[in-house]
Write a protein that binds this DNA or RNA. Sequence first.
DNA 1: TTGAAAGCGTTACCAC
DNA 2: GTGGTAACGCTTTCAA
Lengths: 342, 342
Amino acid sequence: MSSVTLKQLAQQLGLASSTVSRALRNGSDISAETKRRVQSMATQLQYQPHAYASGLRNQLSHTIGVVVPEVNDRFFSLAIDGIEELARQNGYHTLICLTHDSYDLEAEVTRQLTRGRVDGVLISLAGETQGPAHLQQLSSRGVPVVFFDRVSDALGTATVTTNDFDAAYQATEHLLSNGCRRVAYLLMSGKLAIGNQRQRGYEAALAAHGLLLDPDLVLEGGGSNDENTAAIRALLQRRPDLDGLFASTGRLALSAYQACQELGRAIPQDVKVIGFSNLEIASLLAPPLSTVTQPAYEIGREAARLLFSAIIEKKPLLASQSVELPAELIVRASTANLVVSA
Amino acid sequence: MSSVTLKQLAQQLGLASSTVSRALRNGSDISAETKRRVQSMATQLQYQPHAYASGLRNQLSHTIGVVVPEVNDRFFSLAIDGIEELARQNGYHTLICLTHDSYDLEAEVTRQLTRGRVDGVLISLAGETQGPAHLQQLSSRGVPVVFFDRVSDALGTATVTTNDFDAAYQATEHLLSNGCRRVAYLLMSGKLAIGNQRQRGYEAALAAHGLLLDPDLVLEGGGSNDENTAAIRALLQRRPDLDGLFASTGRLALSAYQACQELGRAIPQDVKVIGFSNLEIASLLAPPLSTVTQPAYEIGREAARLLFSAIIEKKPLLASQSVELPAELIVRASTANLVVSA
DNA sequence: TTGAAAGCGTTACCAC
DNA sequence: GTGGTAACGCTTTCAA
């Protein structure tokens, strides 16, 4: 029924459990003969050390926590793939915690993770998140934390991001140089640094083209997909002069498509659309979507790499170790300039 | 630096740790006054019980394991959302393990899970999986296992599936009644029960239309997306008479689109395409994709519900508790019959 | 109502 | 080389 324990294994062999323990972990001071006997009996009885018992003893859980808003999103699921790969390589397990973009859930989850469950945490903040006070508890207990994508610098720890300012600048610039004059900016939450970085890039591109920021064209989504679609629809109706949409997340880009489809606005003739997105099938959409694509998998790997370096070398993480990976602008039909320029 | 322990808390209060333990968990036999003092000191010192220490004592990890081929797939990420919701409601954590469709990885992961890490396991089998011998180890140690979607009945435990036969029958029937005569069936792995169920539905629908099964039209993918696309392209070129594609996974449906796009085959004029898929934006594809959509979120919830019933009531799961949820056929433009029927 | 002690399964330290 | 013992942090008898 239940598993065989070290003690039972030792009894079978007529040895002390301490001896068996060392034999199994190939410790020194154990005769080759004993090692052989122990190993063979262990496989025979299918002995598996209890992870949490040894963890308790060593103060190590061999588990990392990954806190993300959701997993049903191409960016996060790719990042998790990357994280998980590094975790496996390091003999670690991955505890996935979802916040559904709720601050309360994030705080609760974080509290749970302060209970010795994990040796380190990777986190991408919830849209609602105010301050990272709840994360302070983690790092003050010596649990290293790495932020990725939706980061905060309030903890003074390492972060992994993309070049949000530049990428947003390029995306907006691309719309403007393809003829757009009224470009809206769609973001999830004004509370996140990432949204502000991208907004700054958007504004800088406007300025470079001699355009003033129109606050009415900055739309904060953050609701359900349907709510966001409705909000974008309302914006399109309110502002018939709108000729470009820059979505700062993949979700919002698709809501923009949906809204245009519902209103019969042709992309790219009436409105050009570009968005941050990791959608692998952007090219199969009608029309193919121009995207700013983040290296999600690499971001996950990089964040995990930093975390494991801290865990293994037992050194605290520094803001100076932060990494920025470039996003890639991929031009497709949704921003095509169909007017022959003079 | 590190966390405060029960013992330290007790010392601060001048009480025995056993008393403090009971006071915190609101045990009987503790004076209201003591409870109050303990609670307030606990919050003041931010005491958090060590999860694995109490787990070790109670033989409970309050963690479930979820073993899936990948997380970067709409079906699985939705299912995980459902699982995670139920886990949270039950005060449980979710350990996600990816197999990348490799039998060896699945076996390794399973071995890890036999180490007391989890109180139960939800699993969707890897495409390569042969027999569930490695899972026998789990259930023989009293760890309940529930299969979902890619199931096996060899363990005699509960499963959660969709009506794969009927759904595949309907999808094929839909193609045939819209004028297709040569319909190919695309599957991931001939080793999985799920692929065979769906193939049986496909064959039954062919038979109902008086068509013979052509083995050349049954294509086993299971490689990378690019490999699958190439294989479908080859099939389309080899068999110019092909006028319908039925993909048994979302991944394969998209590869089918890609292959048609590359060869310039028009959907649905030249080839009609339908596929199992949870892609939320099927309607934004060019053309909108007809799908058989599984209730992925509910499948996750249902599987988790069964697992927790077994964990909490400490009763073994029975094959008779298995649940089948209906998939939904959603007709879109990719299977439209553009010829006016006589 | 509270405290002492044993034990969950493992490992580290010190004797022998 | 090997065995005892204590300890990781907690809960649960059993006594007081």
